[in-house]
C-alpha cells in the first residue's frame, strides 16, 4: 500500500535537464551523481556536500586549510548557503570538462582569482594568492622574489597600466599562455562513466 523506503535526499531528480544544460550526457550526469553521493556522505549523509566534506575529498583530511579550496567551494556554491547540492556540483564541474567552451573556463578562472569579486584582480590579491600557494606547498621565497614575480606578471598582464587585471586583460593573458588554464580542465570527467560504472544500476534511462 505504501512506500516504505526512506525519503531520498534531494539529488538526481532530472538528469535530462542537467544533461541539456551542461556538457555532460545523461549517463555522465548519473555517473557524476555516484561521485557526489560518495563525497556527500563522508561526514553527514544528507545528500549535500558541506565544506568539510569537500576538503576531505580534496585533501583526504579535514585538517588542511586552503585559501583555494575555500574559494573553489564558494564559487561552486551558487546559492550561497554553505552547502553544495548536486545541481551546483554538476554545473560547476561541467566547466572543468575537457569539452567545455574555453570562454567558460576563462570566466570561471577569473572569478576564482578575483578574490574580492570586484571585477578585477588587484596586486594585493595576487600577492595573497602567491603567499598562500607558497605556504600550502611548503615553499619559501623571500618577499623580494615574490614582489619581483608579481612585478613581472603585472608588466605582462596589466596592459592598461592601471595596477589591476580586468577580465579582458585576463583573457589576453591566458590566450598567450594557455597553460595558465590547465587547472581548469579535468581529464577525469571524460571517463566518469567508467570510473563510476555503478551508475547503471540506478539509471533512469535506457542507454541506447
Amino acid at each position: 500500500c505504501c512506500d516504505l523506503e526512506l525519503p531520498q535526499p534531494k539529488g538526481l531528480e532530472d538528469p535530462q535537464v542537467l544533461a541539456r544544460e551542461t556538457v555532460f550526457s545523461v549517463s555522465e550526469v548519473e555517473a557524476l551523481y555516484e561521485l557526489f553521493k560518495k563525497i556527500s556522505s563522508a561526514v553527514i549523509d544528507d545528500g549535500l556536500i558541506n565544506k568539510e566534506e569537500f576538503q576531505l575529498a580534496l585533501f583526504k583530511t579535514n585538517k588542511k586549510e586552503s585559501l583555494f579550496a575555500d574559494r573553489v567551494f564558494d564559487l561552486f556554491d551558487t546559492k550561497h548557503n554553505g552547502i553544495l547540492g548536486f545541481d551546483e556540483f554538476a554545473r560547476a564541474l561541467s566547466v572543468f570538462h575537457p569539452s567545455a567552451p574555453p570562454d567558460e573556463k576563462i570566466d570561471f578562472s577569473f572569478q576564482l582569482y578575483d578574490l574580492k569579486q570586484q571585477g578585477y584582480i588587484e596586486r594585493q590579491e595576487v600577492k595573497q594568492m602567491v603567499v598562500a600557494t607558497l605556504a600550502e606547498s611548503g615553499m619559501n621565497l623571500s618577499d623580494e622574489v615574490v614582489e619581483s614575480i608579481i612585478d613581472k606578471t603585472f608588466e605582462e598582464a596589466d596592459t592598461k597600466h592601471d595596477g589591476k587585471i580586468d577580465k579582458e586583460e585576463w583573457r589576453n593573458l591566458v590566450l598567450r599562455h594557455p597553460s595558465l588554464l590547465k587547472n581548469m580542465t579535468l581529464q577525469y570527467l571524460k571517463d566518469i562513466t567508467t570510473t563510476f560504472p555503478s551508475f547503471v544500476f540506478h539509471s533512469q534511462v535506457d542507454d541506447t
Binding site: 602567491v130 606578471t153 599562455h177
Partner: peptide, 25 residues
C-alpha cells in the same frame, strides 16, 4: 621558461586547485 616567472602559473599549481583529487578513490 617565461611562465615559470608568472604568478598565476605558480598559483595554479596550488593543491587547493587540484580538483582531480575529488575523483581519487
Amino acid at each position: 621558461k617565461p611562465e615559470s616567472m608568472n604568478a598565476f602559473a605558480l598559483i595554479s599549481r596550488s593543491q587547493g586547485f587540484n580538483l582531480g583529487n575529488l575523483f581519487e578513490k
